[in-house]
């Protein structure tokens, strides 16, 4: 599996670390249910997912990667710094 880092181009999976689903952090003053959802509840879909990967073995960027858990296709990646 290779991930298309926006800085480095296609790179081997061993350079990356999986950092979980790409979710928007609850805003200030969000209720406990919202935080519970953010921290613990995941859909685990068969199909399209968006998750965070850390390119620690490369440029050091955090990426939002769109991929498919059924076909294993990787549809794209962009810098998480540009927004989730």
């Amino acid at each position: 599996m290779r991930l298309p880092c926006p800085c480095c181009g296609d790179r081997d999976i061993r350079e990356f670390t999986y950092r979980g689903a790409a979710l928007a952090r609850p805003g200030e003053g969000a209720g406990i249910d919202r935080w519970d959802d953010y921290l613990h509840l995941r859909d685990n879909p068969a199909g399209a997912v968006r998750d965070l990967w850390y390119h620690g073995g490369g440029c050091g960027a955090w990426l939002v990667v769109e991929r498919d858990t059924v076909t294993h296709a990787v549809d794209g990646a962009r810098l998480a710094a540009e927004g989730l």
């Binding site: 480095c8 181009g9 296609d10 790179r11 350079e15 073995g57 490369g58």
Partner: peptide
């Protein structure tokens, strides 16, 4: 794991890997 072939890693190219 870097692709070191001259077509993708020319003279003057650099990579963090």
């Amino acid at each position: 794991p870097l692709d070191l072939r001259p077509s993708s890693f020319a003279e003057g190219a650099t990579a963090r890997t």
